[in-house]
């Protein structure tokens, strides 16, 4: 190729690259604005959902129905998860504890793990999978079949009618599920400790209590472990329900859109649970000082 043509070619490429640069920046700008807008809508939804808890009319029937759907109907899955997690935790630790002759501390290990971390996180993940996906699918279907628009036209605020009862139910029920999860997990650990390590049940439960007491108390009678273990599911309940409602109410594109909203809900809320778990732990560890 002649030199002049080569030079021309390079110049053309350069000009092309310069022309496409603003386009790329433009696209990035648009994408960034969309993300910021989505984030704003998410927090606006959260704010409105929480604000409407104290505003009339109260949809008490819907709240009870959602507490049943989110709490009572999730009981089976939470019981199974907690019980087997407690057992496998004890089983895995047994080898290590036996090596150091520390089998009697099995109760401390299981309770610390279950109450502070595994109970809230596993209950959160289970509820995100079971309830979050259900909420997103239900609201998504209502959106694509114009039922949300119908609520609006009938003079009902869909956030008040659909989102607030779900968020409130999740805020109440997730801590309850976590307590149950913690308890059956510790019971599962007890079984392994008793039958595999020959640790008497009384000793096991005494060490469980020692662990709870060792981390200190707030206001002299609330164990710090409980504060950590119950503030997390409270936050997770809010995150799961608001994320599910957000994706459900923003569904578009028919049944395929409903599927995508469901997937996004489970993925996003699971990630948020794991990330927030770290930050809540970090904050609480610095706030709740051990004695």
């Amino acid at each position: 190729m002649p030199f002049a043509a080569q030079t021309r070619g390079t110049a053309t490429t350069t000009v092309h690259a310069l022309n496409s640069l603003p386009q790329v920046l433009d696209r990035l700008n648009v994408a960034a604005k969309r993300k910021v807008l989505a984030l704003q809508e998410y927090f606006l939804l959260a704010w409105n959902a929480l604000r409407f808890i104290f505003a009339r009319p109260f949809y008490g029937g819907d709240l009870v129905q959602q507490m049943d759907a989110i709490g009572v109907q999730s009981l089976g899955i939470v019981l199974l998860t907690g019980f087997f997690t407690g057992m496998v935790l004890a089983l895995q630790s047994a080898v290590q504890l036996q090596t150091f002759g520390a089998s009697m501390y099995m109760g401390r290990l299981v309770s610390a793990s279950m109450i502070r971390e595994l109970g809230p996180v596993l209950a959160g993940l289970m509820v995100a999978g079971r309830v979050g996906s259900g909420i997103a699918a239900q609201l998504g279907s209502m959106k694509v079949t114009e039922q949300i628009d119908a609520l609006n036209t009938l003079g009902t605020d869909p956030i008040k009618k659909l989102v607030t009862p779900r968020v409130l139910a999740a805020l109440i029920m997730l801590p309850v599920l976590t307590i149950i999860n913690d308890f059956v997990g510790i019971v599962g650990g007890n079984l392994i400790a008793q039958f595999y390590l020959d640790v008497p049940t009384s000793l096991y439960w005494r060490t469980v209590w020692e662990q709870v007491a060792s981390d200190g108390f707030t206001f002299r009678f609330i164990p710090n472990d409980f504060i950590q273990g119950l503030s997390k599911p409270f936050v997770f309940g809010g995150v799961i329900s608001i994320t599910a409602c957000y994706f459900g109410l923003n569904t578009s594109g028919g049944t395929e859109g409903v599927g995508m909203s469901t997937t996004r809900t489970v993925v996003t809320s699971s990630i948020l649970i794991l990330v927030l778990d770290y930050f809540i732990t970090q904050i609480l560890l610095s706030v709740l000082a051990a004695p």
């Binding site: 079949t145 039922q147 119908a150 036209t153 009938l154 003079g155 009902t156 605020d157």
Partner: peptide, 17 residues
Amino acid sequence: LAVRQKMGMVFQSAALF
């Protein structure tokens, strides 16, 4: 929401709950 109460809307898909 108050103004909408003066109107009745029939949707393409009926949009029954």
